[in-house]
Amino acid sequence: MNCRHCQALLSPLRDGDLVGSEAAEVTSHVGSCAGCGRVRDELDRMVAAAASLASPAPPDALWARIEARLDPPVRRPSGLRALLTMPRLRWLVPSLAAVSLAAVVAGLAARALRPPAPSDDVLLRDAQAQFGQAEEHYLQAIADLRVIAARERDRWPEARRAAYDQSLAALDRTLLQHRDLAHARPADPDAQEQLFGSYRREIALFQESLLRSAAVDP
């Protein structure tokens, strides 16, 4: 084996792609040839250095930019729509429509409240009334979904039931805390948004659980 041939096979040898007599021949040649040994060392150093290169870091705001470019149907994909297309769950439509309405009303009210104008009592009262209305919608939707989920729950495997119970209990606890806070500070938009966030998370739990249930047994 000459050096030219040997050096052409050093990279395959390094990666374990050479076997049998060819591998033995290259190894033997490198062991006795300082030039080829040096080429092998250089190759090793180069590959080691490549492996040690630090990855370029993506900017922190990258996800926000991607999210901003997502089409609405992609950003809010199938959750509610998927539920509504399942025959067994179609009668959920009124509750889920109420949820959507509540979200819109809550959004409008939040806009009216932030920043609150101390001199504009009318605006403040109006916003609080809208929050109250939104909360009613949320509570009604949650009550309906809770009943449906409780009915479906009996059909779930033990482990899923336990996980669901645990998640729901944790969300209920948080929701109560946020509700107390929001009611104690009716003019505080952060407290109101926190409360509605809790409502939405609980609704999302019901929605996800029901979707899974329907996917297993449509």
Binding site: N2, C3, R4, H29, S32, C33, A34, G35, C36, V39
Partner: peptide, 11 residues
């Protein structure tokens, strides 16, 4: 430039 066959210049 050691080599095993006399043409071990660094290629």
């Amino acid at each position: 430039n050691g080599n095993g066959n006399g043409n071990g210049d660094r290629r």
